[in-house]
Design a protein around this nucleic acid. Structure first.
Lengths: 197, 197
DNA sequence: CAAGATAGTTTGGAATCGCTATTATATGAA
DNA sequence: TTCATATAATAGCGATTCCAAACTATCTTG
Protein backbone atom coordinates (compact mmCIF):
# COMPACT_ATOMS: atom_id res chain seq x y z
CA UNK A 1 0.00 0.00 0.00
CA UNK A 2 2.79 2.33 0.95
CA UNK A 3 4.82 1.12 -2.01
CA UNK A 4 2.14 2.23 -4.41
CA UNK A 5 2.19 5.70 -2.89
CA UNK A 6 5.96 5.81 -3.41
CA UNK A 7 5.64 4.83 -7.05
CA UNK A 8 3.00 7.46 -7.72
CA UNK A 9 5.05 10.06 -5.85
CA UNK A 10 8.06 9.44 -8.06
CA UNK A 11 5.95 9.73 -11.18
CA UNK A 12 4.24 12.89 -9.99
CA UNK A 13 7.43 14.49 -8.80
CA UNK A 14 9.09 13.87 -12.12
CA UNK A 15 6.18 15.34 -13.99
CA UNK A 16 5.79 18.62 -12.15
CA UNK A 17 9.55 19.09 -11.80
CA UNK A 18 10.21 18.85 -15.52
CA UNK A 19 7.82 21.70 -16.24
CA UNK A 20 5.24 21.89 -18.98
CA UNK A 21 5.56 23.42 -22.37
CA UNK A 22 8.40 25.57 -23.52
CA UNK A 23 10.96 26.67 -20.96
CA UNK A 24 13.84 28.72 -22.28
CA UNK A 25 12.77 27.87 -25.82
CA UNK A 26 13.06 24.12 -25.39
CA UNK A 27 10.35 21.50 -25.10
CA UNK A 28 10.45 18.92 -22.29
CA UNK A 29 11.79 16.26 -24.66
CA UNK A 30 14.50 18.57 -25.90
CA UNK A 31 15.51 19.24 -22.32
CA UNK A 32 15.77 15.52 -21.74
CA UNK A 33 18.04 15.20 -24.73
CA UNK A 34 20.20 18.11 -23.71
CA UNK A 35 20.63 16.72 -20.22
CA UNK A 36 21.54 13.33 -21.59
CA UNK A 37 24.25 14.57 -23.94
CA UNK A 38 25.63 16.76 -21.18
CA UNK A 39 25.99 13.78 -18.87
CA UNK A 40 26.85 10.85 -21.12
CA UNK A 41 30.43 9.79 -21.78
CA UNK A 42 31.98 9.84 -25.25
CA UNK A 43 31.00 6.23 -26.00
CA UNK A 44 27.36 7.00 -25.30
CA UNK A 45 26.75 10.30 -27.03
CA UNK A 46 25.07 8.75 -30.08
CA UNK A 47 21.49 8.76 -31.34
CA UNK A 48 21.10 5.04 -30.67
CA UNK A 49 22.36 5.28 -27.11
CA UNK A 50 20.05 8.17 -26.42
CA UNK A 51 17.12 6.23 -27.86
CA UNK A 52 17.94 3.31 -25.56
CA UNK A 53 18.27 5.61 -22.57
CA UNK A 54 15.09 7.49 -23.27
CA UNK A 55 13.15 4.33 -23.97
CA UNK A 56 12.04 5.33 -27.42
CA UNK A 57 12.75 4.45 -31.04
CA UNK A 58 15.77 5.62 -33.01
CA UNK A 59 13.45 7.56 -35.28
CA UNK A 60 12.06 9.65 -32.47
CA UNK A 61 15.52 10.15 -31.03
CA UNK A 62 16.72 11.34 -34.41
CA UNK A 63 14.00 13.98 -34.54
CA UNK A 64 14.77 15.31 -31.09
CA UNK A 65 18.46 15.53 -31.96
CA UNK A 66 17.75 17.22 -35.28
CA UNK A 67 16.01 20.05 -33.47
CA UNK A 68 18.82 20.47 -30.97
CA UNK A 69 21.43 20.53 -33.71
CA UNK A 70 19.45 23.07 -35.73
CA UNK A 71 19.24 25.34 -32.71
CA UNK A 72 22.98 25.11 -32.12
CA UNK A 73 22.90 23.08 -28.92
CA UNK A 74 24.59 19.96 -30.26
CA UNK A 75 27.49 19.54 -32.69
CA UNK A 76 27.75 16.45 -34.88
CA UNK A 77 30.99 14.64 -35.49
CA UNK A 78 31.36 11.54 -37.63
CA UNK A 79 33.35 8.75 -36.07
CA UNK A 80 36.75 8.06 -37.66
CA UNK A 81 36.63 4.35 -36.98
CA UNK A 82 33.01 3.75 -37.98
CA UNK A 83 31.58 5.78 -40.84
CA UNK A 84 28.02 5.09 -39.75
CA UNK A 85 28.39 6.40 -36.24
CA UNK A 86 27.87 9.99 -35.17
CA UNK A 87 28.89 11.58 -31.91
CA UNK A 88 26.98 14.55 -30.51
CA UNK A 89 28.65 17.02 -28.18
CA UNK A 90 26.90 19.82 -26.29
CA UNK A 91 28.04 23.28 -27.33
CA UNK A 92 28.96 26.11 -25.04
CA UNK A 93 25.53 27.55 -25.72
CA UNK A 94 24.03 24.32 -24.39
CA UNK A 95 26.12 24.43 -21.22
CA UNK A 96 24.95 27.97 -20.63
CA UNK A 97 21.30 27.08 -21.16
CA UNK A 98 21.52 24.21 -18.68
CA UNK A 99 21.92 26.84 -15.97
CA UNK A 100 18.25 27.67 -16.57
CA UNK A 101 17.12 24.07 -16.59
CA UNK A 102 13.56 23.89 -15.20
CA UNK A 103 14.78 20.85 -13.32
CA UNK A 104 16.83 23.17 -11.13
CA UNK A 105 13.87 23.47 -8.78
CA UNK A 106 14.21 19.79 -7.95
CA UNK A 107 17.99 20.05 -7.82
CA UNK A 108 17.75 22.81 -5.25
CA UNK A 109 15.27 20.78 -3.23
CA UNK A 110 17.64 17.81 -3.25
CA UNK A 111 20.49 20.09 -2.30
CA UNK A 112 18.65 21.09 0.84
CA UNK A 113 18.76 17.53 2.13
CA UNK A 114 21.39 16.63 4.71
CA UNK A 115 24.49 15.21 2.95
CA UNK A 116 24.23 11.82 4.58
CA UNK A 117 20.56 11.48 3.72
CA UNK A 118 21.22 12.59 0.17
CA UNK A 119 23.73 9.82 -0.42
CA UNK A 120 21.55 6.98 0.81
CA UNK A 121 18.53 8.47 -0.95
CA UNK A 122 20.41 8.43 -4.25
CA UNK A 123 21.50 4.86 -3.64
CA UNK A 124 17.90 3.76 -3.15
CA UNK A 125 16.81 5.53 -6.34
CA UNK A 126 19.57 3.77 -8.23
CA UNK A 127 18.46 0.46 -6.80
CA UNK A 128 14.85 1.04 -7.83
CA UNK A 129 15.96 2.04 -11.31
CA UNK A 130 17.99 -1.13 -11.68
CA UNK A 131 15.08 -3.27 -10.60
CA UNK A 132 12.61 -1.56 -12.94
CA UNK A 133 15.01 -1.65 -15.89
CA UNK A 134 15.44 -5.40 -15.48
CA UNK A 135 11.68 -5.96 -15.26
CA UNK A 136 11.08 -3.81 -18.33
CA UNK A 137 13.89 -5.51 -20.24
CA UNK A 138 15.63 -2.22 -20.86
CA UNK A 139 19.34 -1.47 -20.69
CA UNK A 140 20.58 0.05 -17.48
CA UNK A 141 22.83 3.08 -17.70
CA UNK A 142 25.36 3.74 -14.99
CA UNK A 143 28.73 5.19 -14.12
CA UNK A 144 32.14 3.59 -13.79
CA UNK A 145 31.86 3.69 -10.04
CA UNK A 146 29.85 0.47 -9.85
CA UNK A 147 30.57 -0.94 -13.31
CA UNK A 148 31.93 -4.43 -13.83
CA UNK A 149 34.06 -3.24 -16.75
CA UNK A 150 35.83 -0.64 -14.69
CA UNK A 151 39.49 -1.33 -14.05
CA UNK A 152 40.81 1.25 -11.67
CA UNK A 153 44.35 1.11 -10.41
CA UNK A 154 43.53 2.60 -7.09
CA UNK A 155 46.51 0.99 -5.44
CA UNK A 156 49.20 1.22 -8.04
CA UNK A 157 48.61 4.16 -10.32
CA UNK A 158 52.01 4.64 -11.85
CA UNK A 159 51.42 6.96 -14.78
CA UNK A 160 48.91 8.64 -17.04
CA UNK A 161 46.29 5.93 -17.46
CA UNK A 162 45.23 5.17 -13.93
CA UNK A 163 41.76 4.08 -15.05
CA UNK A 164 40.61 1.95 -17.93
CA UNK A 165 37.40 0.51 -19.34
CA UNK A 166 37.64 -3.23 -19.85
CA UNK A 167 34.79 -3.24 -22.36
CA UNK A 168 36.18 -0.89 -24.99
CA UNK A 169 39.76 -1.28 -23.79
CA UNK A 170 40.50 2.40 -23.58
CA UNK A 171 41.95 4.60 -20.85
CA UNK A 172 39.58 6.83 -18.94
CA UNK A 173 40.18 10.32 -17.67
CA UNK A 174 39.27 11.07 -14.07
CA UNK A 175 36.50 13.41 -15.21
CA UNK A 176 34.82 10.63 -17.15
CA UNK A 177 34.24 8.33 -14.21
CA UNK A 178 30.95 9.91 -13.20
CA UNK A 179 29.48 10.15 -16.69
CA UNK A 180 26.67 7.92 -17.87
CA UNK A 181 27.61 4.94 -20.01
CA UNK A 182 25.48 2.65 -22.15
CA UNK A 183 27.91 -0.20 -21.69
CA UNK A 184 27.34 -0.22 -17.95
CA UNK A 185 27.20 -3.64 -16.38
CA UNK A 186 26.36 -4.32 -12.78
CA UNK A 187 29.37 -5.31 -10.72
CA UNK A 188 29.86 -9.07 -10.50
CA UNK A 189 28.54 -10.74 -7.36
CA UNK A 190 31.92 -11.87 -6.10
CA UNK A 191 33.55 -8.53 -6.75
CA UNK A 192 31.44 -5.67 -5.45
CA UNK A 193 31.90 -2.19 -6.82
CA UNK A 194 33.59 0.61 -4.96
CA UNK A 195 30.67 2.65 -3.79
CA UNK A 196 28.25 -0.22 -3.25
CA UNK A 197 26.20 0.16 -0.09
CA UNK B 1 26.72 17.74 -8.27
CA UNK B 2 25.14 14.76 -6.58
CA UNK B 3 21.85 16.61 -6.33
CA UNK B 4 21.65 16.96 -10.07
CA UNK B 5 22.13 13.22 -10.47
CA UNK B 6 19.27 12.66 -8.04
CA UNK B 7 16.97 14.96 -9.98
CA UNK B 8 17.76 13.27 -13.27
CA UNK B 9 17.35 9.85 -11.67
CA UNK B 10 13.84 10.70 -10.49
CA UNK B 11 12.89 11.97 -13.92
CA UNK B 12 14.34 8.94 -15.66
CA UNK B 13 12.84 6.48 -13.23
CA UNK B 14 9.42 8.01 -13.68
CA UNK B 15 9.71 7.85 -17.41
CA UNK B 16 10.73 4.25 -17.87
CA UNK B 17 8.44 3.06 -15.06
CA UNK B 18 5.33 4.52 -16.62
CA UNK B 19 5.85 2.54 -19.80
CA UNK B 20 5.56 3.76 -23.36
CA UNK B 21 2.56 3.69 -25.60
CA UNK B 22 -0.53 1.67 -24.97
CA UNK B 23 -0.54 -0.72 -22.03
CA UNK B 24 -3.78 -2.56 -21.44
CA UNK B 25 -5.48 -0.27 -23.92
CA UNK B 26 -4.69 2.95 -22.05
CA UNK B 27 -2.21 5.67 -22.90
CA UNK B 28 0.22 6.93 -20.25
CA UNK B 29 -1.92 10.03 -19.62
CA UNK B 30 -5.03 7.94 -19.23
CA UNK B 31 -3.21 5.80 -16.71
CA UNK B 32 -2.29 8.92 -14.79
CA UNK B 33 -5.93 9.97 -14.73
CA UNK B 34 -7.13 6.56 -13.65
CA UNK B 35 -4.61 6.45 -10.82
CA UNK B 36 -5.62 9.90 -9.70
CA UNK B 37 -9.35 9.22 -9.50
CA UNK B 38 -8.64 5.96 -7.74
CA UNK B 39 -6.64 7.72 -5.05
CA UNK B 40 -8.33 11.11 -4.62
CA UNK B 41 -11.01 11.72 -1.99
CA UNK B 42 -14.57 12.72 -2.84
CA UNK B 43 -13.81 16.46 -2.67
CA UNK B 44 -11.04 16.10 -5.21
CA UNK B 45 -12.48 13.84 -7.90
CA UNK B 46 -13.35 16.68 -10.28
CA UNK B 47 -11.88 17.74 -13.65
CA UNK B 48 -10.50 20.96 -12.15
CA UNK B 49 -8.78 19.19 -9.28
CA UNK B 50 -7.25 16.67 -11.64
CA UNK B 51 -6.01 19.48 -13.87
CA UNK B 52 -4.37 21.13 -10.88
CA UNK B 53 -2.82 17.87 -9.77
CA UNK B 54 -1.55 16.96 -13.19
CA UNK B 55 -0.21 20.45 -13.79
CA UNK B 56 -2.19 21.00 -16.96
CA UNK B 57 -5.17 23.03 -18.15
CA UNK B 58 -8.77 22.12 -17.55
CA UNK B 59 -9.18 21.66 -21.30
CA UNK B 60 -6.61 18.91 -21.46
CA UNK B 61 -7.95 17.33 -18.30
CA UNK B 62 -11.42 17.31 -19.78
CA UNK B 63 -10.20 15.44 -22.84
CA UNK B 64 -8.42 12.80 -20.79
CA UNK B 65 -11.53 12.29 -18.69
CA UNK B 66 -13.77 12.12 -21.73
CA UNK B 67 -11.79 9.17 -23.01
CA UNK B 68 -11.91 7.36 -19.69
CA UNK B 69 -15.68 7.90 -19.37
CA UNK B 70 -16.26 6.69 -22.92
CA UNK B 71 -14.34 3.51 -22.17
CA UNK B 72 -16.32 2.87 -19.02
CA UNK B 73 -13.60 3.52 -16.49
CA UNK B 74 -15.13 6.61 -14.87
CA UNK B 75 -18.75 7.42 -14.00
CA UNK B 76 -19.95 11.03 -13.92
CA UNK B 77 -22.23 12.41 -11.23
CA UNK B 78 -23.44 15.99 -11.04
CA UNK B 79 -23.10 17.66 -7.68
CA UNK B 80 -26.35 18.35 -5.81
CA UNK B 81 -25.05 21.49 -4.15
CA UNK B 82 -23.26 23.00 -7.17
CA UNK B 83 -24.83 22.52 -10.57
CA UNK B 84 -21.56 23.22 -12.34
CA UNK B 85 -19.50 20.63 -10.56
CA UNK B 86 -19.09 17.02 -11.62
CA UNK B 87 -17.67 14.18 -9.59
CA UNK B 88 -15.93 11.26 -11.26
CA UNK B 89 -15.77 7.85 -9.64
CA UNK B 90 -13.74 4.88 -10.86
CA UNK B 91 -15.86 1.91 -11.89
CA UNK B 92 -15.31 -1.69 -10.96
CA UNK B 93 -13.79 -2.16 -14.42
CA UNK B 94 -11.26 0.55 -13.55
CA UNK B 95 -10.34 -1.11 -10.25
CA UNK B 96 -9.77 -4.36 -12.09
CA UNK B 97 -7.58 -2.73 -14.72
CA UNK B 98 -5.41 -1.10 -12.10
CA UNK B 99 -4.16 -4.56 -11.23
CA UNK B 100 -2.32 -4.48 -14.56
CA UNK B 101 -0.92 -1.01 -14.09
CA UNK B 102 2.46 -0.75 -15.82
CA UNK B 103 3.60 1.09 -12.73
CA UNK B 104 3.44 -2.21 -10.85
CA UNK B 105 7.07 -2.83 -11.80
CA UNK B 106 8.09 0.15 -9.71
CA UNK B 107 5.67 -0.78 -6.95
CA UNK B 108 7.24 -4.21 -6.72
CA UNK B 109 10.70 -2.67 -6.63
CA UNK B 110 9.66 -0.37 -3.80
CA UNK B 111 8.08 -3.30 -2.02
CA UNK B 112 11.43 -5.06 -1.97
CA UNK B 113 12.93 -2.31 0.16
CA UNK B 114 13.29 -2.92 3.90
CA UNK B 115 10.20 -1.52 5.72
CA UNK B 116 12.18 1.03 7.71
CA UNK B 117 13.99 2.29 4.63
CA UNK B 118 10.73 2.49 2.72
CA UNK B 119 9.16 4.81 5.25
CA UNK B 120 11.99 7.31 5.38
CA UNK B 121 12.39 7.14 1.62
CA UNK B 122 8.75 8.07 1.15
CA UNK B 123 9.11 10.92 3.62
CA UNK B 124 12.01 12.37 1.64
CA UNK B 125 10.07 12.11 -1.61
CA UNK B 126 7.17 13.94 0.01
CA UNK B 127 9.52 16.63 1.21
CA UNK B 128 11.03 17.10 -2.24
CA UNK B 129 7.58 17.30 -3.77
CA UNK B 130 6.53 19.98 -1.31
CA UNK B 131 9.59 22.03 -2.06
CA UNK B 132 9.19 21.76 -5.82
CA UNK B 133 5.48 22.53 -5.71
CA UNK B 134 6.16 25.71 -3.76
CA UNK B 135 8.89 26.79 -6.18
CA UNK B 136 6.65 26.09 -9.17
CA UNK B 137 3.73 27.88 -7.57
CA UNK B 138 1.53 24.82 -7.87
CA UNK B 139 -0.90 23.44 -5.30
CA UNK B 140 0.37 20.63 -3.16
CA UNK B 141 -1.82 17.58 -2.76
CA UNK B 142 -1.61 15.56 0.40
CA UNK B 143 -3.46 13.33 2.82
CA UNK B 144 -5.18 14.10 6.10
CA UNK B 145 -2.24 12.66 8.00
CA UNK B 146 -0.23 15.86 7.82
CA UNK B 147 -2.97 18.32 6.88
CA UNK B 148 -3.63 21.47 8.88
CA UNK B 149 -7.39 21.11 8.33
CA UNK B 150 -7.50 17.67 9.85
CA UNK B 151 -9.31 17.48 13.15
CA UNK B 152 -8.90 14.03 14.53
CA UNK B 153 -10.21 13.11 17.93
CA UNK B 154 -7.48 10.69 18.67
CA UNK B 155 -7.87 11.07 22.38
CA UNK B 156 -11.59 11.40 22.84
CA UNK B 157 -13.45 9.68 20.04
CA UNK B 158 -16.89 9.29 21.50
CA UNK B 159 -19.09 8.36 18.59
CA UNK B 160 -19.45 7.94 14.85
CA UNK B 161 -17.56 10.96 13.53
CA UNK B 162 -14.15 10.57 15.08
CA UNK B 163 -12.50 12.53 12.27
CA UNK B 164 -13.47 15.73 10.56
CA UNK B 165 -12.14 18.11 7.93
CA UNK B 166 -11.99 21.70 9.18
CA UNK B 167 -11.96 23.10 5.67
CA UNK B 168 -15.21 21.71 4.33
CA UNK B 169 -16.63 21.02 7.80
CA UNK B 170 -17.62 17.46 7.09
CA UNK B 171 -16.98 14.22 8.91
CA UNK B 172 -14.41 11.86 7.43
CA UNK B 173 -14.51 8.09 7.29
CA UNK B 174 -11.42 6.20 8.42
CA UNK B 175 -10.84 4.95 4.88
CA UNK B 176 -10.65 8.49 3.55
CA UNK B 177 -7.71 9.60 5.66
CA UNK B 178 -5.08 8.31 3.24
CA UNK B 179 -6.70 9.65 0.08
CA UNK B 180 -5.32 12.59 -1.83
CA UNK B 181 -6.99 15.96 -1.26
CA UNK B 182 -6.73 19.19 -3.21
CA UNK B 183 -7.50 21.22 -0.09
CA UNK B 184 -4.38 19.93 1.62
CA UNK B 185 -2.53 22.50 3.65
CA UNK B 186 0.78 21.90 5.33
CA UNK B 187 0.53 21.57 9.08
CA UNK B 188 1.08 24.82 10.93
CA UNK B 189 4.60 25.39 12.27
CA UNK B 190 3.61 25.38 15.94
CA UNK B 191 1.46 22.29 15.54
CA UNK B 192 3.31 19.58 13.63
CA UNK B 193 1.32 16.85 11.93
CA UNK B 194 1.11 13.32 13.17
CA UNK B 195 3.51 11.54 10.90
CA UNK B 196 5.96 14.37 10.49
CA UNK B 197 9.58 13.25 10.64
C1' DC C 1 31.95 -9.79 -53.95
C1' DA C 2 27.29 -10.93 -52.04
C1' DA C 3 24.38 -11.25 -47.81
C1' DG C 4 23.18 -9.79 -43.57
C1' DA C 5 23.70 -6.68 -39.63
C1' DT C 6 24.04 -2.12 -37.77
C1' DA C 7 23.77 3.37 -37.47
C1' DG C 8 21.11 6.85 -38.68
C1' DT C 9 17.42 9.40 -41.20
C1' DT C 10 12.92 10.23 -43.34
C1' DT C 11 7.95 9.92 -43.90
C1' DG C 12 3.04 9.25 -42.76
C1' DG C 13 -0.49 8.82 -39.54
C1' DA C 14 -2.42 8.77 -34.92
C1' DA C 15 -2.56 10.78 -30.52
C1' DT C 16 -1.59 14.44 -27.09
C1' DC C 17 -1.34 18.85 -25.29
C1' DG C 18 -1.97 23.77 -24.62
C1' DC C 19 -4.40 27.79 -26.01
C1' DT C 20 -8.56 30.15 -26.81
C1' DA C 21 -13.34 30.55 -27.10
C1' DT C 22 -18.00 29.07 -25.51
C1' DT C 23 -21.81 27.43 -22.39
C1' DA C 24 -23.81 26.92 -17.93
C1' DT C 25 -24.06 27.89 -13.09
C1' DA C 26 -22.97 30.56 -8.86
C1' DT C 27 -22.01 34.66 -6.25
C1' DG C 28 -22.00 39.48 -5.07
C1' DA C 29 -23.32 44.33 -5.67
C1' DA C 30 -26.39 48.04 -7.09
C1' DT D 1 -34.60 41.88 -9.13
C1' DT D 2 -30.91 42.64 -12.39
C1' DC D 3 -26.40 43.10 -13.90
C1' DA D 4 -21.49 42.02 -13.57
C1' DT D 5 -18.05 38.94 -12.39
C1' DA D 6 -16.13 34.47 -11.18
C1' DT D 7 -15.93 29.58 -11.62
C1' DA D 8 -16.79 24.57 -13.70
C1' DA D 9 -16.65 22.20 -17.62
C1' DT D 10 -16.39 21.50 -22.68
C1' DA D 11 -15.23 22.11 -27.80
C1' DG D 12 -12.24 23.42 -31.68
C1' DC D 13 -7.78 24.46 -33.55
C1' DG D 14 -2.84 24.30 -34.26
C1' DA D 15 1.58 22.61 -32.93
C1' DT D 16 4.17 18.92 -31.22
C1' DT D 17 5.26 14.14 -30.18
C1' DC D 18 5.56 9.62 -30.93
C1' DC D 19 5.63 5.15 -33.29
C1' DA D 20 5.99 2.13 -37.11
C1' DA D 21 7.89 1.24 -41.39
C1' DA D 22 10.67 2.23 -45.29
C1' DC D 23 15.07 3.85 -46.77
C1' DT D 24 20.29 4.99 -47.27
C1' DA D 25 24.86 4.21 -45.98
C1' DT D 26 28.43 1.59 -43.81
C1' DC D 27 30.42 -2.38 -41.59
C1' DT D 28 31.13 -7.39 -41.11
C1' DT D 29 31.11 -12.06 -42.50
C1' DG D 30 31.18 -15.92 -45.53
Amino acid sequence: MDSRAIAELILHLGRIASGDGLVGGLTPTQWTGLRYFARANRFSRTPSAFAAFHGTTRGTASQIIKGLVADGYLKQTRSRTDGRSIRLDPTRKARALLKDDPLQALVRAADALPPGVRGSFAAILQRLLGSVAVQAGKPLFGTCETCAHFEGDDCCQDGVSAYECGFVNEPLAAGELDQLCINFSSAKPGQPGIGTA
